[in-house]
């Protein structure tokens, strides 16, 4: 479904990704592992079209990636705390709504609200629909953010360290949710993870990045020490 082929990304003169190939299938949760600065976020941004690739291609179902193909889930949760969970989820539908039907939450058409409610049900938060997003726990907020991504109707979900800000129990729950959405609903989920053991428990497959190169791929249970050992001390970049 999602295919990144031979991706090269530069920041200024520095080449960050040196020809990376990654594919995520329908119904699959792929975890991207790697040390700090190995290029995981850059890869995700390239997949989302937020960072231009100097070389290579990003395709979804064999066609060049379109703006509606990918939905993002962030480490910092990025909800509007003062709005209800439901209104936050509805915002995922903005791209398909004309301005006169989307200027305020009160104008959202009924079918959008019902679809957003359905998305909240899928993340298990239907009972919190009218609560302010800011009043929910970190794990619940991240699930609302996932519901918003679902409301975008994108077949590919890209998540950059979606559980790094959460406590262990909430992290398990959110990753289990992402895996279930992939398996039960046929989404392609690419998640950058910091902890290999979370990937072991929830991912179908892993990709390991080291200094902008894929150095391992496949079974989540394989040893991943090579990603983290013998690292040069981190160089501060201006």
């Amino acid at each position: 479904m999602l295919r990144l082929a031979d991706i090269v990304v530069h920041y200024g003169d520095r080449e960050i990704l040196h020809g990376v190939d990654v594919a995520v299938g329908r119904g699959e949760l792929l975890a991207v592992l790697g040390a700090n600065g190995s290029g995981k976020s850059t890869l995700l941004k390239a997949a989302a079209g937020l960072t231009p690739a100097a070389r290579g291609s990003v395709t979804v179902d064999e066609k060049p990636r379109g703006i509606r193909d990918t939905a993002l889930v962030f480490q910092k949760i990025h909800l509007v705390g003062r709005r209800s969970a439901l209104d936050n989820v509805c915002a995922g539908a903005l791209a398909r709504l004309p301005l006169h039907k989307s200027l305020t939450p009160a104008l959202f058409p009924r079918d959008v609200r019902e679809e957003a409610m359905g998305c909240l049900e899928r993340v298990g938060l239907a009972n919190r629909a009218h609560d302010r997003a800011g009043s929910l726990s970190g794990g619940q907020q991240q699930r609302v953010a996932i519901a918003r991504a679902l409301c975008q109707r994108a077949p590919v979900v890209l998540a950059d360290e979606p559980v790094s800000a959460l406590d262990p129990a909430a992290a398990e729950q959110v990753l289990a949710l992402l895996a279930q959405l992939a398996h039960a609903e046929g989404l392609a989920v690419l998640a950058v993870l910091h902890q290999p053991d979370l990937a072991r428990r929830h991912a179908d497959r892993i990709v390991g990045l080291r200094d902008g190169v894929v150095v391992l791929e496949g079974d989540p249970n394989q040893p991943v020490d090579v990603l983290y050992e013998n690292r040069e001390p981190e160089v501060a970049t201006p």
């Binding site: 939905a71 993002l72 910092k76 990025h78 909800l79 995922g92 903005l94 791209a95």
Partner: peptide, 28 residues
């Protein structure tokens, strides 16, 4: 800027981003 980034990445237009991310965050 977080919510605005999120909505922009979801394909929302400039006015929609203002109406659903920026203005509600700073309304008080």
């Amino acid at each position: 800027p977080g919510p605005a980034t999120a909505l922009r990445s979801a394909g929302a237009g400039r006015i929609q981003v203002a109406a659903h991310a920026l203005l509600p965050s700073v309304l008080p």
